[in-house]
Amino acid sequence: MKSYVSFKNIVKSYDGDKLVVKNLNLEVQEGEFLTMLGPSGSGKTTSLMMLAGFETPTQGEILLRDKPLHNLPPHQRDIGMVFQNYALFPHMTVAENLAFPLRIRRLSKADIKAKVDRILDMVKLTPLADRYPAQMSGGQQQRVALARALVFEPKLVLMDEPLGALDKQLREHMQMEIKQLHEMLDLTIVYVTHDQSEAMTMSDRVAVFNDGVIQQMDTPNKIYEEPTNSFVAQFIGENNSLLATNVQADGDYYRTSLDDGTQLAALKVRPSSPGKKIMLCIRPEHISVNNPSAGSQQVKAKIQQFIYLGDHVRMLTEVAGQGNFMVKMPASQVHADWTPGSDVMLSWQAKNLKALDVVTH
């Protein structure tokens, strides 16, 4: 696969002092769905806006198909853009909104009609062609905004929190629709969100941003199962952390000790030396209760509370004096004699306990 978009040593500062984006190097492949994920202020939207041409890098350059973009204004970059607030023209009908980018590009009336009719059909809006934005629901307006970004057939589409204003059910439906359009039209999509489940559902790769830096970039599965630091582990999915002391290295593992003396083997992810405090992380679904499997390691825990979520239960426990250690299990596996205050034995395979960041404070 060829690189379609390249960010090369991009730095962005608004005041000449604080860096919003710090030395960003990022390649987006042709046909890829890449999501920039991170909390507010992490640099993801600023990075997208620099690619769109609405912001200028302080340093570095952005290439599209190996050509520098810095001298091209936004409307000449041939990039589709979808925003959270739709940005539709209120005085224009749906069909007129969709025709607008084509009129700017001076297409003939016949071509404009053909392209508008095609995209209306594709996003199932043909019956609403003569309506105005104010006469439509939020979901319908977002569909129009999506159609307008696609109508002039750009190969690159940028989306900034496009589903943020929709309710959960509609958001999930639109996620599937965007993914289908991505595949059907062979688009390259760069998508910005702070919603981790959205990123995991839709993306080929996810770039996790924090404090202006990409913390990890990989497939959703890799980022979930193999986080490279505790920020990524905490931000993506549910995660348990245990503070431990590194006793010694043992092949691919560290032998570690919790505050109560419990010894645990943890898979080496980040380098650490003996005697250092280290953060151990494990996903709640990798933990068994009173049911150790062959080769697993066990730790004693005290039940704090249960949170019932229909088909599954989150059981919060205390392990070695550290509370809110979560176990996730089907509701049918919860025993009647498990009550807050009672003790249980938790177990897991050592490979699922990851030794991540060295703790310096």
Rank of each mutant, 00 (worst) to 15 (best):
M1L: 12
M1R: 12
S3P: 08
S3W: 01
Y4R: 10
Y4V: 08
S6M: 12
S6W: 07
F7G: 02
F7Q: 06
K8T: 13
N9L: 09
N9V: 08
L19C: 01
V20L: 06
K22N: 14
E27H: 14
L37H: 00
G41Q: 03
L48E: 01
L51H: 08
L51V: 12
L51P: 00
L51A: 12
G53C: 13
G53I: 13
G60Y: 05
I62G: 04
L63K: 02
D66V: 00
P68C: 05
L72A: 10
H75Q: 15
Q76C: 09
G80F: 12
F89E: 12
H91K: 07
N97R: 05
L102E: 04
R103S: 09
I104P: 04
I104W: 07
L107I: 02
D111C: 08
A114V: 05
A114Q: 15
D121Y: 03
V123Q: 07
K124Y: 12
L125W: 13
P127Y: 10
A134M: 11
Q135I: 00
Q135R: 03
S137V: 07
S137K: 12
G138N: 00
Q140D: 09
Q141E: 09
R143N: 08
R148F: 10
F152R: 00
L156Y: 02
D160A: 09
G164N: 11
A165C: 05
E172D: 14
H173N: 14
M174F: 10
M176V: 15
I178D: 05
I178F: 08
K179W: 06
K179I: 09
M184S: 14
I189P: 03
I189D: 04
V190Q: 08
Y191G: 03
V192P: 01
V192M: 05
D195T: 07
D195L: 06
S197H: 04
E198K: 00
T201L: 08
M202L: 14
D204K: 04
D211V: 03
V213G: 07
I214S: 01
Q215D: 00
Q216V: 06
Q216C: 05
I223P: 01
Y224C: 03
E225R: 12
P227D: 03
P227Q: 06
N229R: 00
N229G: 01
S230W: 08
F231Y: 10
S241R: 13
L243I: 14
Q248G: 09
Q248W: 07
D252W: 08
Y254A: 04
T256Y: 06
S257H: 09
L258D: 02
D260M: 06
K268D: 01
G275D: 12
C281H: 14
R283Y: 10
H286Y: 14
V289L: 02
N291P: 03
P292N: 04
A294Q: 15
A294C: 07
G295W: 10
S296C: 12
Q298P: 00
K300Y: 01
K302D: 10
Q304C: 10
Q305P: 06
F306C: 12
F306N: 11
Y308P: 06
H312F: 02
N324D: 15
N324M: 13
M329Y: 06
P330G: 07
V334P: 10
A336Q: 14
W338F: 11
T339L: 15
V344K: 05
V344N: 04
M345P: 02
L346Q: 07
Q349I: 09
N352Y: 14
L356P: 03
D357N: 15
V359L: 09
